[in-house]
């Protein structure tokens, strides 16, 4: 197991954002994390990579407890992530953004090596032509790719992708899904939060579903899609949900 999430609970004031969530992740898999808006998906990411201290429970990454470690320690251990709302380092160039990931991630590269890795990763995500531009000059789709490039440059064992497909047009989605598959082929384990159902169902080995902070289903994409509770959670109206899912599959 590369990651073991055990009884993770996160309470803000009176609100339980993540409630007693447990799951395991095997190395080399892609795990889809889905759920309605406000289900606590991003909060769960924030609990895993150390942005929020846990109220209860534990996260074990490659045999090591992550609880209480600052985010930079977690990054050092080989866990990288993207942000749902992109956070480019605006006044640095695209290449420098990626170099930050390479320099301070798991491998702790020097600048020379980081430059090489940055250029390779930028080519990989299709941003090589924009390497010398300032990051704030990119459009949203490019910024999402930049997020991904930064995380990849760290050469992580585990990659957390937070809605990298949202806001992309269909062609871009296809391209990005392709990229995600290629990342997995390199042996990087992935957890992806996603709203675009057909994409996440296509690419994931397993899917877990959060609703109101609670894990309500877990299994293969096929198993989860047939789960009554999941359908209700998503739309409240099982019939409507059924129809929409049919359309998505079609």
């Amino acid at each position: 197991m590369i990651l073991e999430v055990k009884n993770v609970t996160k309470v803000f004031g009176g609100l339980t954002a993540v409630n007693d969530v447990s799951f395991d992740l095997e190395e080399g898999q892609i795990l889809g994390l889905i759920g309605p808006n406000g289900a606590g998906k991003t909060t769960l990411f924030n609990c895993i990579n150390g942005i929020y201290p846990l109220t209860k429970g534990s996260v074990i990454f490659r045999g090591q407890q992550l609880n209480g470690l600052p985010t930079y320690k977690v990054a050092d251990l080989g866990l990288a992530r993207t942000h749902q709302i992109v956070r480019p380092l605006n006044e640095l160039t695209v290449r420098e953004n990626v170099m930050v990931g390479a320099c301070f991630g798991r491998k702790n590269m020097g600048l020379g090596q980081a430059t090489e890795v940055a250029d390779e990763v930028l080519a990989f995500v299709g941003l090589d032509k924009r390497a010398g531009l300032l990051a704030n000059s990119l459009n949203v789709a490019q910024k999402k790719r930049l997020e991904m490039a930064r995380a990849l440059a760290a050469q992580p064992y585990l990659l957390l992708l937070d809605e990298v497909l949202a806001g992309l047009n269909p062609t871009e989605v296809t391209g990005m899904v392709d990229t995600i598959r290629k990342i997995r082929e390199q042996g990087i384990t992935i957890i992806m939060i996603e709203h675009i159902m057909h994409a996440v169902m296509n690419v994931s080995d397993r899917v877990i579903v959060l609703n109101y902070g609670t894990l309500i289903a877990e299994g293969t994409p096929a198993e989860v899609q047939g789960n009554q509770e999941v359908i209700e959670a998503y739309l409240g109206d099982p019939d409507l949900a059924e129809r929409l899912l049919e359309e998505e599959r079609g």
């Binding site: 290449r95 430059t115 250029d119 995500v125 299709g126 090589d128 010398g132 391209g175």
Partner: peptide, 23 residues
């Protein structure tokens, strides 16, 4: 940003011919 851009991708671990840069 399209699918074509991604065809013939190099995975990060191989060393593609690097573009010149100031570092």
């Amino acid at each position: 940003m399209s699918a074509q851009n991604n065809s013939g991708l190099q995975p990060p671990n191989t060393s593609a011919a690097p573009a010149p840069s100031r570092f």
